[in-house]
Amino acid sequence: MTLLSLFGVGKQFSNGTQALRDLSFCVNQGAFVSLLGPSGCGKSTALRLTAGLLAPDTGTVDFPSSRPETGFVFQEPTLMPWADALTNVRLPLDLKSVRRDEANARAAVVLARVGLGGFERALPRELSGGMKMRVSLARALVAQPQLLLLDEPFAALDEITRAQLGDDLLRLWQEDGLTILFVTHSVSESAYLSQRVLVLSQRPGTITADIALPGARDARLSPATIEAQRTISTALNGAIAA
């Protein structure tokens, strides 16, 4: 079942930059889709359009059912520095005026699920970069979204932390039946994590390859993962050369 579809989407910024041109793709419910492309190709813009934070100039962003509850993770943790981890995670619930004790309980559960049980009262400055990103992930999940949008969430992290967070994300995706749209510029990350990779061309971004990666890639360096990386790299090189 299709959860969201973009059709012929174009976006030009007020400074004249044409960020996206004729971008069309569908995402099925429960899919883990990567949006891969070179820097500045409009990946983030596509994600913001999907979230409804930007309106397209041309084309449509459509949700065949109603607009799903959406979680968003930015490249930076984007936490409130004055608030502890629990309060940060609780923010979406607070904005929906969920009762305080219920919101606290739900936020604590999600914090534990991302591996930060016991850090409820920690302030962002007391947490490492990876832990801050986990708080950010917990905040995106606390309102039980159907759709999770991630904008290069692990780009600023070291390799080991990035691998751990990737595995945690896979686990959360499977447990919650999430639909994930994952923006990245890392070939290996997209090959290991996603079921499908959409390759974007250089600006103005449009989709040049739609690669399905069926079957499980149970390890980062399994032959299937390496093969997927090769396929994606070839498509990406084509996109950059074009």
């Binding site: 930015f74 979406p92 309102a143």
Partner: peptide
């Protein structure tokens, strides 16, 4: 980004003012 996040979750102006 925090303001965008608030918008995504349907925050009112008053909520944005008070919480962020």
């Amino acid at each position: 980004n925090l303001l965008d996040l608030a918008r995504l979750h349907g925050a009112s102006r008053l909520q944005v003012l008070w919480r962020i």
